[in-house]
Design a protein around this nucleic acid. Sequence first.
DNA 1: TTTATTAATCGTAATATTACGATTAATTAA
DNA 2: TTAATTAATCGTAATATTACGATTAATAAA
Lengths: 109, 109
Amino acid sequence: MGLAKTEIFTDEQNIISLFAKAFSHPARVAILQKLFVIDTCYCGDLVSEIGLAQPTISQHLKELKQLGLIKGNVEGTSVCYCIDPEKWQEMKEVMLEFLNQDIPKPDCC
Amino acid sequence: MGLAKTEIFTDEQNIISLFAKAFSHPARVAILQKLFVIDTCYCGDLVSEIGLAQPTISQHLKELKQLGLIKGNVEGTSVCYCIDPEKWQEMKEVMLEFLNQDIPKPDCC
DNA sequence: TTTATTAATCGTAATATTACGATTAATTAA
DNA sequence: TTAATTAATCGTAATATTACGATTAATAAA
């Protein structure tokens, strides 16, 4: 296994878990935070900033790009990354709805 | 590997990734959604509701409990689970701060 | 053309995750 | 006490994740 049985869950449950997985590694959190602060960033900047090997950063960037949360633009030998604002907004709405559920009043247990 | 180098990240980045990991499996999302809807729930109810084997559900419950997001209360041979409101609020604040970052205005790439 | 520079991809080792059958532990009912 | 019920834990197979060295591909500079 090591493989979620996605077919028994709702689309919403699967989507929430996919977005959450994007944030489930501190390197990906760090990449996104950096992109928020400086808007635009070359892959090499992230490598020196974060302190993981270049192939490792590229791998994390690939995951974020596949989900659509970031975009990459080739500029000569460099690649410039940034947040995709529309996709981020879409993700935010899904996650906020999940996080903002009303907490049951009585402390049950 | 398969092991994040947590020591090179900030506490905040590590905490965000830990909370996100809790939501990175649809079964855990389903468990939490169920607890939000019915406030209080026995382990066995979750097993029949979700359709994974009992040891699998117990394992997911354990992870949520270790993070503090849920509490379990033994009632005879059953165990009653519920959301921990304080911890959920704490988690929400951390995640909202991350999700609500201002999206850079210019679409950079 | 040759030599950098930059980042993606490949291959792979170490570890983590998911799932479940079997068992165990704890309680309740008979 | 014995049997039933419920959920945790153990053991383990299948798969995923993380990390990085080596290589490759693409462009730019010399």
